Simulated scan of single mutants.
Amino acid sequence: MFHVTERLLLRPAWPEDAEAIFGGISDEGVVRNLASAPWPYRREDAESFVSRDHVAAYPRFLITQKSRLIGCIGIDPVGEQGDGSVELGYWIARPYWGRGYATEAARGMIDIARLIGHTRLSAGHFADNPASGRVLRKVGFRPTGQSARRHSCGRGEAAECVLFSLDLADQPQMPIAA
């Protein structure tokens, strides 16, 4: 599956992407805002990422623009909530921060989640990363009023994570680009 937005192509990762992924995410400033990425991030981690099986219900995409890697975005199942919720996660390489790429990719991922049949998305951001909270609000997520401590390998400890949710039935569907 591929998805085209105004400026971006969301596409699956391939083995030949490992070096570009390593170059984008092997930055402590990026990994410290992620709950599941290892630190230090090694080339072997990127190679493992690109060799993972693709699961249609839980897609992960590279965020690219004119063959440049901007970051990665995807959805994963949420523990044992049982409400059909999946969690949105993403990262953007430091040279591309502040350019609206996360917002644009998240809008595309919301459309993909809806097409797959998901009805609810959850997401979170570390409390000291308000930029990610702004992205989530721009694409329709609402704070749940809850937070949780989540571990980040890039931080080396747990930190407060502000939780958000999005009911896809409440969202207008964006036109799907070919």
Rank of each mutant, 00 (worst) to 15 (best):
Q81I: 14
L163T: 02
E16T: 09
S26T: 05
L69K: 02
A56G: 12
R107F: 11
D170T: 08
R43N: 04
D45V: 11
Y101M: 07
K138Y: 03
A37D: 04
Y58Q: 11
A46I: 08
I21G: 00
G82K: 01
F141Q: 00
S165K: 04
H151E: 10
S122V: 12
Q171C: 01
G145Y: 00
Q81W: 14
K66R: 13
R142H: 02
S152Q: 02
A37R: 03
C72T: 08
R114V: 04
P95H: 08
G71T: 07
H125G: 01
W14M: 14
R52A: 06
R7A: 09
A18M: 11
G108P: 00
R150G: 00
V86E: 02
D76H: 12
G29C: 03
A158C: 10
G74S: 06
G24C: 10
V162H: 05
R68A: 10
P130L: 04
G117Y: 00
G108M: 03
G140L: 01
W97C: 10
M1I: 07
S51K: 07
P59T: 09
V55R: 14
D53W: 08
R60W: 04
E80L: 12
L121S: 03
R149Q: 10
E157T: 10
E16A: 13
L88Y: 08
G133A: 01
V4L: 14
P40M: 13
R7I: 09
L34D: 08
A35R: 14
S147E: 07
R32T: 10
D27V: 13
G74H: 05
C153W: 06
E87V: 01
R120N: 07
G74I: 07
K138P: 02
M1H: 15
R43Y: 13
R94S: 13
S26M: 07
D167N: 11
A177F: 11
S48H: 06
Q173H: 06
P175R: 06
R32H: 05
A177Y: 01
I176K: 13
G154M: 07
W91Y: 15
P38I: 11
M109K: 05
G100N: 11
V31H: 03
L9W: 07
L166C: 05
P12R: 12
G79D: 04
A113S: 09
G140I: 01
E47A: 14
Y41N: 05
E104G: 02
E19D: 15
L9G: 01
K66E: 14
P143G: 02
E47F: 10
L8V: 11
L9H: 03
P77L: 06
Y90N: 02
D128C: 02
L88P: 03
S85K: 03
A13M: 05
H151A: 13
R11G: 09
P143R: 11
A102W: 00
Q173F: 10
G84I: 08
M174Q: 15
I176P: 00
